[in-house]
Nucleic acid binder design. Structure first.
Length: 560
RNA sequence: GCGCCCGUAGCUCAAUCGGAUAGAGCAUCGGCCUUCUAAGCCGACGGUUGCUGGUUCGAUUCCAGUCGGGCGCGCCA
């Protein structure tokens, strides 16, 4: 709808340019939904933006623009208001046409083509395979997966990526911890490794290792050697065990990845070395204090960064750069890296490293989505999250307690860069405190109407209904139609701005408009044309709710 | 000390890349079920958008400063 108005306005502006009223440059004007119905359905600020350039008062210019607007059946009335807004009042036919479109396009309604089939890589979770996934990972998973679904819906070819840090010191700590457990050493024991992982799962890994268990993970089968002194074997088994664990949790959360990228492969394929060499060849590195440094300050970072430590090993960020280089080489026009705010420092570092390669990667590539901390509250008290200490709420815990739908909705429903309090008691409560039920209930209600029709042997004639949409003459029905028509705009905005919470919020508003209408009007009335029109709108509402919930990875139940 | 994020109703949060009279839910109070699911609806109450300036037709939004909270500032990841 916005697009149609945009075209009309461009038309009018062209005409004024030909008439010499306006100069050449086209400003970035905005067409937006109005807050109040007095201001029409859409408002445009173009006259206020162009007033200076045209040497006219905003309202006078607005008058000229309106006079130059081509006639269009979608527009019932145009007014000039306030400081110079051009307010569009759409005709009933415009809303009816949108309802027809919903029923025609079905599951595709709301999907767009702005991505034009280009490739976008979305990396998220990327947890170290050293422990079960916790609530922070859960938030990352919900955000990353919903973003991916939004990109798919806007015409992008999406690749979900998971980066496994399977090569660093933390993996060594994991192996040492499992080894210690396998030898019967407890965390309280003085012989326990200094940075060992103390969680109970370490005991489980050790038990299975000693028992000679087999693990299927990452497309290969690892069988335990049972010998605690073979640290390399312990390490391989432990990583496989945790990968399997994480994969299972993510699958239970409705999240699957297209690419699992192993940090270790960057070493075996010499990609890390190539990055260091390339940066050296570009003369963006230097040796000092026995280490090799990146001149990160040349590329906007706070300070220069060590790439190769004096002990000859690389710091973690060099493989990070090599990994992102791989994304670039694989043709991602956009790359989104989703990570916790406590890692935001790596942003400048990775970008600096990519710049130092001197191969034309844009300065703001990759894009980032940072999510703030999640604190978990239960029974009014905070549950501490401490991965190293081994005591924390896991993704699996959340799913078990609150269910898949509530957990996903909860974690997505607010802006990712604000802190989140996850109240376990609230999330598990099956009440409308939890907005996901409110939205799902609206969907279930339409299904219930359909069941009623079946029971009463009422036949819905869609073709007839679409001829009688003018029978939807109440303000409540109109509000529902207006809400429905916002869906494509919301999907586009949520994807483009990387703000999936917009969709969660929108669905609540759509459900709200529906519930109000539902309470105000009986759908299944005797008047056939009236009934068909209302059922058509109810079906359209259900379709949009279902499409939106699918983008959130939340189910759309037929009954509740 | 420096950098990033956040301060909006009693609580949890929105506010369409600067728009018109800042909106929902929860909580509190008062109404609505012989009618398609009351997991719903209607009404009331609730605000100097932390504070002070600046930019302009217009600022919750942008800028400067300030106060408060979180995170980061390793040859850890």
């Amino acid at each position: 709808m916005k697009d149609a108005l945009h075209e009309l306005l461009e038309n009018a502006l062209d005409r004024l340019r030909r008439d010499g009223v306006l100069g050449a440059p086209a400003p970035d004007f905005v067409i937006e939904r109005t807050r109040s119905r007095e201001h029409g359905d859409f408002a445009c600020n173009v006259a206020m933006l162009l007033a200076k350039q045209a040497g006219k008062k905003p309202r006078d210019l607005a008058t000229a623009i309106v006079a130059a607007l081509p006639a269009n059946p979608l527009v019932a009335k145009v007014e000039i208001a306030g400081p110079g807004f051009i307010n569009f009042f759409l005709s009933d036919a415009a809303w009816h046409e949108e309802i027809r479109r919903v029923l025609r396009e079905g599951a595709h309604y709301g999907h767009g083509k702005s991505g034009a089939g280009r490739a976008v890589g979305v990396e998220f979770v990327s947890a170290n395979p050293t422990g079960p996934l916790h609530v922070g990972h859960a938030r990352a998973a919900a955000i990353g997966d919903t973003l991916s679904r939004l990109f798919s819906a806007t015409g992008w070819k999406v690749y979900r990526e998971y980066y496994y840090n399977d090569a660093g010191a933390q993996i060594q700590n994991l192996a040492l911890s499992v080894q210690a457990r396998a030898k019967g050493i407890e965390p309280e024991d003085p012989r326990w490794p200094a940075d060992g992982y103390r969680g109970d799962y370490i005991r489980d890994v050790a038990k299975e290792y000693v028992a000679g268990a087999s693990i299927d993970a990452g497309g290969e089968r690892i069988t335990a050697k049972r010998d605690p002194d073979d640290l390399d074997a312990v390490r391989r088994f432990s990583v496989a065990w945790l990968r399997r664990e994480q994969d299972a949790d993510l699958r239970a959360f409705g999240v699957e990845f297209d690419v699992y990228f192993l940090e270790s492969s960057l070493y075996t394929d010499a990609k890390v070395q190539q990055v260091v060499d390339r940066i050296g060849a570009e003369e963006h590195s230097y040796e000092a204090d026995g280490a090799l440094w990146l001149r990160a300050t040349e590329f906007g970072d706070d300070k220069d960064r060590v790439m190769r430590k004096s002990d000859g090993t690389y710091t973690y960020f060099v493989p990070d750069v090599a990994y992102h280089l791989s994304k670039w080489e694989r043709g991602y026009k956009r790359a989104i890296t989703e990570l916790g705010a406590d890692h935001h420092g790596s942003l400048a570092r990775v970008r600096a490293g990519l710049q130092a390669l001197g191969i034309g990667i844009p300065k703001d590539w990759p894009e980032y989505v940072l999510h703030q901390m999640v604190t978990v509250v239960k029974g009014g008290a905070e549950v501490k999250i401490s991965k190293r200490a081994g005591s924390y709420v896991t993704l699996r815990d959340l799913i078990d307690m609150a269910g898949l739908d509530a957990t996903r909705y909860f974690l997505i429903a607010r802006k990712s860069d604000s802190q989140l309090v996850f109240d376990i008691d609230l999330a598990r409560a099956q009440t409308n405190d939890n907005p996901v039920y409110y939205v799902q209930y609206a969907h279930a209600r339409v299904c219930s109407v359909q069941r009623q029709m079946h029971e009463r042997s009422i036949v819905f004639e869609q073709r007839d209904a679409l001829k009688h949409l003018d029978r939807l003459d109440s303000d409540h029905a109109r509000d529902v139609m207006v809400e429905i028509s916002r869906f494509p705009e919301i999907v586009e905005a949520a994807a483009e701005n990387r703000e999936p919470h917009l969709l969660a919020q929108y669905l609540r508003e759509l459900a709200g408009a529906f519930h109000v209408w539902y309470n105000a009007e009986q759908f299944l009335v005797d008047d056939e044309a009236q009934r068909n029109a209302r059922v058509a709108l109810a079906y359209a509402t259900r379709q949009v709710l279902a499409n939106g919930l699918a983008m959130l990875g939340v189910s759309a139940p037929q009954t509740m």
